[in-house]
């Protein structure tokens, strides 16, 4: 159970819990935020995956775990958008259609959470969904790392690439040819696609966001590229632009229902902003490929952790629940620590090479 005072629990009902958490809890959230930020700054993804499961395992009710996770995503999206203040090549028409679709999807996800909570099933269902999500993405990332594929996948540096060398993926071309339900819209990069395809993609990723409290970019960006045919630079910027709005509206709706706990979000965001600077700086020094395998392993450990925690909750074992929480936070700490350690050792090695030897 959360270590906050009983007063914080009653304040939660009104949707405001301004630092109602104990100092130890705030310190824990700052530390966890730092770890999440390092991962996000380094890999460009993986922050929000861990927040909601950790909150669930700490005993927060599902609407608070998901709502606060979403508010955290909103905050980090605002910071990321400000960093890429020209946002590369945003397609505002695409962004606008996606904001509408994503927001409705988030609201559907949110209503589902509250409905399941009224049945006492929300924690269990969301935990199972996370086991599948973390396990699936963990397997994908680990397989990529073992194959030795170069690069970090889609990241925000791609926002600066030129549209002229872009080629629409075959699957997107097929979708554009097959689905011709009006209205058809023309997007940047000369992409002509049905607005319904865009809305469907946005809605589906919105439901994921609203139900799990994740940013959804890890699905929305590949979906924009492979299902809609959006050029990568446009996908990066437009995704950021639209999640600020849909995440903000989603957080607002969760907040109205008492799902956003400022005592969680504020320290998490603070820690993560610092961590993201460390993670980003590390990308210039450390090769991501070497650590990618650890990242995949961390996601897989996270899947196992959530599973253990959920079994513990089901059979009423505090030990298993605690073990799950320790594993999810511990695996994130190990990977973030690996990034920092490798950065420091690389810097030391560089400095030693620069020191002239006395002949």
């Amino acid at each position: 159970m959360p270590a906050s005072s009983p007063a914080a629990v009653t304040v939660l009902d009104s949707g405001l819990s301004l630092f109602g958490s104990s100092p130890e809890l705030i310190a824990l959230f700052v530390g966890f935020g730092l770890v999440v930020g390092i991962l996000f700054g380094f890999f460009g993804m993986g922050g929000s995956f861990l927040v909601t499961p950790a909150l669930l395992m700490m005993g927060y009710p599902a609407p608070v775990a998901v709502g606060s996770g979403m508010a955290f995503v909103f905050g980090t999206a605002v910071i990321a958008s400000l960093k890429h203040h020209d946002l590369g090549q945003v397609d505002y028409k695409l962004g606008g259609i996606m904001i509408a679709g994503t927001t409705v999807g988030i609201e559907v996800g949110r209503v589902s959470v509250y409905y399941l909570e009224s049945l006492g099933l929300a924690g269990g269902v969301i935990s199972v969904a996370y086991v599948l999500l973390l396990g699936g993405i963990g397997l994908m990332v680990t397989r990529e790392a073992l194959k030795g594929d170069g690069g970090r996948g889609i990241d925000h540096e791609d926002a600066d690439r030129d549209l002229s060398d872009y080629e629409i993926p075959a699957i997107a071309k097929r979708i554009q040819k097959t689905v011709r339900i009006p209205p058809m819209v023309t997007l940047r990069g000369d992409v002509r696609v049905s607005a319904w395809v865009i809305t469907a993609v946005a809605f589906a990723t919105g439901v994921l966001s609203g139900f799990l409290g994740v940013g959804g970019g890890f699905i929305r960006m590949p979906a924009m590229i492979y299902a809609i045919g959006v050029p990568v630079p446009v996908a990066v910027g437009t995704d950021l632009f639209e999640i600020v709005f849909s995440g903000g509206i989603g957080s607002y709706l969760y907040g109205q229902g008492g799902g956003v706990d400022l005592g969680i979000v504020a320290p998490l965001l603070f820690g993560s902003a610092l961590g993201a600077r460390i993670g980003s700086a590390a990308t210039a020094i450390v090769d991501a490929d070497g650590i990618k395998g650890y990242f995949g392993g961390m996601l897989l450990a996270g899947a196992v952790a959530v599973g253990i925690g959920e079994v513990g909750s089901y059979v009423g074992s505090d030990l298993l629940e605690t073990a799950g929480l320790v594993l999810v936070i511990g695996s994130a700490v190990v990977v973030a620590g690996a990034i920092v350690y490798t950065t420091v050792t690389s810097l030391r090695a560089t400095r030693h090479r620069q020191i002239p030897t006395a002949d």
Binding site: G15, L16, V104, G248
Partner: peptide, 30 residues
């Protein structure tokens, strides 16, 4: 499924989300 909600003006929630927004801006600038 229970009705989807349309955001309505609620000062407390607006302050809550607004403070997260302000914190994000401050952290970016700082």
């Amino acid at each position: 499924m229970a009705g989807l909600e349309i955001p309505t003006w609620d000062p407390e929630t607006a302050i809550l989300i607004g403070s997260i927004l302000i914190e994000a801006v401050v952290l970016y600038v700082g």
